[in-house]
């Protein structure tokens, strides 16, 4: 139906229309970027702010030492009767609790993902001001479907991964811009019924964030 010749005609015609439309226009002024790039860099404040914002958007937050991660993960799972936990390739072995069945994501089908009780991942960074976790498909972060289909997402954020605001995050993300990126700010939600917020529609209904200190 749509022949390649028609396609290239459409392309040329649209570009031609754009050029015609712009003919004789005055060039716009250079973009002024006077907004904040980074805060004052106070690490402990950024950690506090992130936790506060995550809780505000109905995530459960626990602050733990990195060495206590397996125990914390086991606790979160026990509280929810989670017995099968998916993990992505590259998740540190020292984080994995021994008490729970660990299912490696070696290309599970969508239905197999749906059969998991939850998933635990790392992240690339977290944005304090907006309470946002950034997953960039790096080691331990998994592919997009892994953190989408199961109903519980446990995400580990190291304190050193927290940045102040959105521009600081984009400074870090430039080199991985073409990887699949997912910014998560609280559990899935809808406000479509009379604007009353319901947590949990299609994405994980429960988001648990473990903020890990390395000290």
């Amino acid at each position: 139906m749509v022949e390649p010749a028609a396609m290239s005609t459409a392309r040329e015609e649209i570009l031609g229309r754009v050029r015609d439309a712009l003919e004789g226009s005055t060039a716009p002024e250079p973009v002024v970027r006077a907004y904040r790039r980074a805060g004052d860099g106070d690490r402990s404040q950024a950690v506090e702010l992130l936790c506060d914002r995550l809780v505000d958007y109905k995530a459960e937050v626990r602050r733990v030492a990195e060495s206590d991660l397996p125990a914390a993960i086991a606790e979160v799972c026990a509280a929810r009767s989670v017995s099968r936990l998916g993990v992505p390739d590259g998740l540190p072995h020292e984080w994995r609790p021994a008490s729970i069945e660990i299912v490696e994501d070696t290309g599970l089908t969508s239905r197999e993902l749906d059969g998991l009780d939850g998933v635990v991942t790392a992240c690339t960074l977290a944005i304090a001001e907006t309470g946002t976790l950034v997953l960039a498909a790096g080691p331990g972060e998994g592919r997009r479907a892994l953190t989408l289909v199961p109903d519980l997402h446990i995400c580990v954020v190291k304190e050193s991964q927290i940045v102040d605001g959105v521009p600081a995050a984009f400074d870090h993300l430039g080199p991985v811009a073409q990887r699949p990126l997912t910014l998560v700010s609280g559990p899935s939600a809808t406000s479509d019924i009379e604007l009353s917020r319901v947590e949990g529609v299609h994405g994980p209904r429960q988001l648990v964030v473990l903020v890990a200190s390395t000290g």
Binding site: P180, L181, P187, G203
Partner: peptide
């Protein structure tokens, strides 16, 4: 838009990523 600091999910992807999506 929603009056949130950030909406729950923002997705960015570029073309095709082998093994993901």
């Amino acid at each position: 838009s929603t009056g949130e600091r950030m909406n729950p999910y923002t997705s960015l992807w570029t073309g095709v990523t082998p093994g993901d999506g």
